[in-house]
Simulated scan of single mutants.
Amino acid sequence: MKPNQSIRVSHMLRGIEDPVLIISSDKLIVLNANRKAIDTLTNGKASQLRGLPLQSAYGGERLEAFPKPLPAAFLLPVSQNGNIALINFRVSPLKIEGKKYWLAIGRKVEQAEELQKRLQDLEQEKSLQQMKVQFMSMTSHEFRTPLTAISSAMDLLEARLELDGQLSSFHRLQLRKMADEIFQLNSMLDEVLALSRMAGNNWEPDRKAVAPEQIIEALRYQYFSQRKDERSLLLSVEGEPRPILADRDQLAKVFTNLISNAFKYSTQKNPSVKLSYKKKKLVITFRDHGIGIPESDLPYLFTSFYRGSNVDGIEGTGLGLSIVKTFVESNRGTISVSSGVNEGTTFTLVFEDFADAI
């Protein structure tokens, strides 16, 4: 090959991590080889490879010429540190300035012992993964039981104080604070439980006809009413409501997270949710007027454990939006976000699978 051709070929060889040979089409001379091929076939001795005929084996005492014609694939036994390995080369034609060469790219053939070891490693990793999933699930459920008992006791206490005429504004404020903290803990446990199901591939949706506005209305009453800051969730519906096909539990977790974030990251105005029923799709927008999200954070917003650069001092695990995106997409929806620092944030969900269209 001409000097400029050699330079081009050398650049190409350096860009491939597997063993690569450039072989002449007539006499099967190894014209060039990358460093991986030299190390693998001749233990780093380029003089025993380049410029010589392709051999039927490398690393042994006796070298035999490779039979012609060159097949589309061939195996080369290689002796390395007293062990024999097989390199499987795939051959394809290569043309440089009208002249034909053979490009052979190799990959080590794993022996039965190596395959068995890899299988054992995979089985062990799978077992550890299952143990992690089971532990996360068990822990979440174990924490939820006492939290439910505490919540029930608080409701009874509030009812009794009110019945006895002793429910002062101080008592009401403290009970609301406790309720808020319990809600935050339950939300965190929901995230951990969802993450464990996702890790165990146990989160496929059970899609049935659901009414999103009813889910949001129930969440607003159960979790986002009687707040200590006296803010409330504004809900508006545009168009004729129609049920969509979705997993009710997953949809509830999506809505809970987005509504909770809207309250968490804003302090003055009321967050809002708008459902727009169009002919072929449902568009749901969650909007707040809070601290917003820096532009540099937006590409990573749905990444697990990622938190915005301007949320110091605000509790959170960084898991919520990752789970939200997974659940939205598993229900064949899309999610997008628009935001600016101190300009608020808007999340937009779009679902196109109406139940009455199936």
Score class of each variant (00 low, 15 high):
10 S>E: 12
12 M>S: 10
14 R>W: 06
15 G>M: 13
19 P>E: 07
19 P>R: 08
21 L>R: 03
25 S>I: 09
26 D>H: 12
26 D>R: 10
29 I>D: 04
30 V>M: 07
36 K>D: 10
41 L>M: 09
43 N>E: 09
43 N>M: 08
44 G>W: 09
46 A>P: 03
46 A>D: 12
48 Q>P: 00
49 L>G: 05
50 R>W: 01
52 L>A: 06
53 P>Q: 11
56 S>M: 13
57 A>W: 00
60 G>I: 06
62 R>A: 04
64 E>T: 14
67 P>I: 01
68 K>V: 11
68 K>N: 01
70 L>M: 15
72 A>Q: 15
74 F>P: 07
75 L>T: 07
78 V>Q: 08
78 V>W: 12
79 S>A: 11
80 Q>R: 15
80 Q>K: 15
83 N>V: 05
87 I>L: 14
88 N>E: 14
89 F>W: 03
95 K>E: 12
96 I>E: 06
100 K>T: 01
102 W>S: 06
108 K>D: 03
114 E>W: 07
115 L>R: 15
120 Q>F: 08
121 D>F: 10
123 E>N: 14
127 S>I: 01
132 K>T: 09
135 F>V: 07
138 M>R: 15
141 H>T: 04
145 T>F: 10
146 P>T: 09
146 P>H: 07
153 A>C: 05
156 L>W: 01
161 L>K: 13
162 E>M: 03
163 L>K: 14
165 G>T: 13
166 Q>F: 10
167 L>D: 09
173 L>N: 11
175 L>M: 14
176 R>Q: 15
177 K>Y: 07
181 E>F: 08
182 I>P: 03
191 E>Y: 02
197 R>I: 01
198 M>V: 13
200 G>Y: 02
201 N>H: 09
203 W>P: 00
203 W>L: 03
207 R>H: 05
207 R>Y: 03
207 R>T: 08
210 V>Y: 09
212 P>D: 10
213 E>V: 01
215 I>N: 03
215 I>G: 03
220 R>Y: 06
221 Y>H: 13
222 Q>I: 02
223 Y>T: 02
225 S>N: 09
225 S>A: 15
229 D>H: 11
230 E>T: 07
231 R>I: 11
234 L>Q: 14
235 L>T: 15
237 V>E: 11
237 V>T: 13
240 E>W: 02
244 I>R: 02
246 A>W: 00
248 R>M: 07
252 A>Y: 04
257 N>K: 07
264 K>E: 02
266 S>A: 15
267 T>R: 13
271 P>K: 12
274 K>E: 12
279 K>V: 13
280 K>L: 04
281 K>D: 12
283 V>K: 14
285 T>K: 15
286 F>M: 12
291 I>W: 02
292 G>I: 02
293 I>D: 06
294 P>Y: 11
296 S>W: 01
298 L>N: 01
303 T>I: 05
307 R>G: 01
310 N>L: 11
311 V>I: 12
312 D>R: 14
313 G>M: 11
316 G>D: 04
317 T>W: 00
322 S>C: 09
324 V>D: 01
326 T>I: 06
327 F>W: 06
328 V>C: 00
331 N>R: 04
336 S>P: 02
336 S>T: 07
339 S>I: 10
342 N>Q: 14
344 G>L: 04
347 F>M: 03
348 T>M: 08
350 V>C: 04
351 F>I: 09
356 D>W: 04
357 A>K: 14
358 I>N: 12
